[in-house]
């Protein structure tokens, strides 16, 4: 009982056939082969699958694919420019060691992007709240917070 849904994925309108019981994460990873969003737990407790839907960070592992119809979805794959130029957040994570094993990174950056899109001048606490649902086992979050803070500064000044 496949159904067709249409939505905007990383600024591109797409139509795709889905099974109604898929999650958005399943569609992204298994069908569209966009594997930036990770499945760290599958039940919304780690944040590795975070993507942005209509401006909000959500756990794509719990997001019914049928709800994506007509919406605007941004994933980590849609962040850098076509010429490969990194988004300031991506650049900052590399420069400030916000990345270690990298498994939380996609989700972490998407949570941070959702924050900065709404609040370009966040406090440290705002940053920590925005990524509190993104578990990281490597970094102790210190350099992740730093990466986001510095990216915010850079984005403000350009």
């Amino acid at each position: 009982m496949k159904r067709e849904i249409a939505f905007t994925l990383n600024n591109e309108e797409i139509a795709v056939e889905v099974e109604p019981n898929w999650t958005l994460l399943y569609l992204l990873r298994e069908v569209l082969e966009m594997t930036g969003a990770k499945e760290g737990c599958g039940v919304g407790e780690c944040g590795a699958c975070t993507v942005i839907v209509d401006g909000n960070a959500i756990s794509s592992c719990l997001y019914p694919v049928m709800e994506v119809e007509g919406k605007n979805v941004t994933t980590i794959e849609g962040l850098s420019k076509e010429d490969g130029t990194l988004h300031p957040l991506q650049q900052s994570f590399i420069e400030n060691n916000g990345v270690q094993c990298g498994y939380c990174t996609s989700g972490m950056i998407m949570s941070a992007k959702a924050l900065l899109d709404k609040n370009p001048d966040p406090t440290e606490n705002d940053i920590r709240v925005s990524i509190a649902g993104n578990i990281c086992r490597c970094t102790g979050y210190v350099q992740i917070v730093e990466s986001i803070r510095k990216a915010a500064e850079k984005m403000k000044n350009t």
Partner: peptide
């Protein structure tokens, strides 16, 4: 900077999954 691992910030890194 750990530029060697750029794929980790663009979502292109290939883990076992």
């Amino acid at each position: 900077p750990r530029t060697a691992e750029i794929n980790k910030v663009t979502g292109r890194a290939v883990y076992i999954d």
